[in-house]
Design a binder for these strands. Sequence first.
DNA 1: TGTAAACCTTATAGTAGCTATAAGGTCAAG
DNA 2: CTTGACCTTATAGCTACTATAAGGTTTACA
Lengths: 140, 140
Amino acid sequence: MNIGAIARVSGLTTEAIRYYEGIGLLPAAKRGANGYRVYSGVDIARLIFLRQARKVGFTIDQCRQLRNLYENPRRKSATVHALVANKLVEVEQHIHELENMRRVLSELISACSNDEQAGCAIIDSLAGSAASDHLGKAKT
Amino acid sequence: MNIGAIARVSGLTTEAIRYYEGIGLLPAAKRGANGYRVYSGVDIARLIFLRQARKVGFTIDQCRQLRNLYENPRRKSATVHALVANKLVEVEQHIHELENMRRVLSELISACSNDEQAGCAIIDSLAGSAASDHLGKAKT
DNA sequence: TGTAAACCTTATAGTAGCTATAAGGTCAAG
DNA sequence: CTTGACCTTATAGCTACTATAAGGTTTACA
Ligand SMILES: [Zn+2]
Ligand SMILES: [Zn+2]
Ligand SMILES: [Zn+2]
Ligand SMILES: [Zn+2]
């Protein structure tokens, strides 16, 4: 199985797979006589594992920790649990930041007259109302 | 007013301000006799504007468009409105992606026994259940 | 058999939006 | 007069890849 084939079954790109190998997230693949990387079933599982982890938001570094647990038969379920619970908190924080942005954007949109005029509540609001006398009047 | 002072009032870092100038998002600042950048009221408004725009999620490129509108007295409110409405859609898409991650992470956490054992539903699930016979049994 | 497409290889540069570092010059306080 | 807080530029680093260049290999098919 060459890199293109395993890319298709794992859902990663060939470039990503080579990149993971380069940074040591994956072990160096075996090579065929022609120098091509050769993969087998155990590699498929590893790649799918990484793909899934990335998809739910784990960073490369966190994926490295997950991989260590994945490959350690003496791991404890609780260690894995803690890692995932941490990630959940991170994702929720990220969601809250974006929800704040969404709220502000909605408010801006509501305030805007959305017409042909130059005056715009969005512009005024972003500039900070105090600075709405913005152009041409410098006070050093 | 030097760069440190305007950084404090605008909420940007000095490095970010110099970076914005370098990429042309800000006009080149005037310089004092010593070569230091010198800022005035009009610059404060511009920096606060950029800071606010970045805070609600606009990219540098979108900030450039917003800045053009901000500085164009013949702009139309509707143009600004469209830009912000677009950004709102982008932010909502980002939120939905993260909500998906959150859902999957929650499911993983619920399935995990969270104890001292090596068997872990999270590991199994990430590897794709079909690959749960993962280590040591290669089939090419 | 020739050749063109579809693979594979490496190395390097680019993306976004900064932050950090190095190696200096300037200014205000004690 | 020295210490520390500023300021300057240029350059490298960060994340997680993607894109490009410049090749070598394999497969298909006319
Ligand atoms: Zn408007
Ligand atoms: Zn995000
Ligand atoms: Zn939603
Ligand atoms: Zn578990």
